[in-house]
């Protein structure tokens, strides 16, 4: 049971890191995620069922997500529309595109084909299925976390970090803020799509509706993580996101498992997620006001 939650949480954490990049680093609330998550799942599933291979499938999933994110940033840059609207536009268009990718169907199963998950289980031999997967997902999500940490230590990554806080400073340093947005939102959605690709293989199917409510769920994970401890180091911030993602999945598991005592059904979980975000926001707000009174700043 606990292994299941952890595996679920670690797959989800990759998506949450994407949401963290847009919402926290870039300060670009991006709703493309709801579409690009399913895009990643669809692309990987079709690559695998059509015999293109698992790794090309994962790579293409990342690339298609990154392209979707870039489209959102370009709409925002060129047409000067708010980032929220740009994200909604891409997300809506992606719904149709995702069904196209899935060959005109809303749902494609990954039956009787090798996936990254089935391969890993085979590799594990006599180790119980869920534990093999857990070890694999720790390695997978851990690698992405480390790569991301290294990226945010490069000159480009640090500048991306400054973008969300002070766009004027980035411009003053001779960097085109538009390029930075395309790169940042692209990277974020690449991760989201990769997470979708992993989930499709884990659950054995891709669905055009897979991404509904993903942004809010990712945000809930990011905010839960922020309550755990405070830090300004990127390495610790990504740890926060991963722990937050696992914590979120655990809470949702509890909601599903014990919720029926109070008459909760799985369809109520999105409502619970929304309430969780609202509670997190209000706690963060009170914390800030209390803090500012103490330090005498607005």
């Amino acid at each position: 049971m606990i292994e299941g939650i952890l595996v679920d949480g670690l797959i989800f954490a990759v998506m949450a890191m994407g949401v963290f990049i847009t919402f926290r680093v870039l300060n670009f609330p991006d709703l493309t995620v709801d579409g690009s998550f399913a895009t990643g799942a669809a692309v990987a599933t079709m690559c695998i069922t059509n015999g293109l291979g698992i790794f090309p499938g994962l790579l293409l999933a990342f690339a298609s997500g990154a392209a979707a994110g870039a489209v959102t940033a370009i709409i925002h840059n060129r047409l000067k529309v708010p980032n929220l609207l740009a994200g909604i536009l891409t997300m809506t268009m992606l719904y149709s595109i995702n069904i196209r990718i899935l060959g005109g169907r809303a749902n494609v199963a990954l039956l009787r084909v090798d996936t990254i998950i089935s391969n890993v289980i085979k590799l594990g031999g006599s180790i119980p299925r869920e534990w093999t997967l857990l070890i694999f997902m720790i390695l997978f999500t851990g690698t992405i976390k480390v790569l991301l940490d290294v990226f945010f230590h490069t000159d480009l990554g640090v500048t991306l970090g400054a973008m969300g806080d002070n766009e004027q400073m980035v411009i003053s340093q001779g960097v085109n803020p538009k390029t930075m947005k395309v790169l940042g939102v692209g990277l974020s959605n690449g991760l989201v799509a990769l997470s979708g690709a992993m989930l499709a293989q884990y659950q054995g199917f891709a669905d055009a509706n897979l991404g509904i409510g993903m942004v809010v769920q990712g945000l809930a994970a990011v905010m839960l993580g922020e309550f755990l401890f405070r830090s300004n180091k990127i390495g610790m911030l990504t740890v926060q996101v991963i722990l937050g993602a696992i914590l979120y999945k655990a809470l949702m598991f509890l909601g599903r498992y014990y919720g029926y005592y109070i008459n909760l059904t799985p369809s109520d979980l999105k409502l619970l997620t929304g309430i969780l975000v609202i509670i997190s926001l209000s706690i963060a707000k009170t914390r800030n006001t209390v803090g500012s009174k103490k330090w005498g700043i607005k």
Partner: peptide
């Protein structure tokens, strides 16, 4: 950038133009 450390701030400003990896 108030969100970044002093050294990161100085690093961004030590060279103008597009930043690489």
């Amino acid at each position: 950038s108030g969100k970044l450390s002093l050294e990161d701030n100085m690093n961004i400003c030590s060279k103008k133009g597009f930043k690489g990896l």
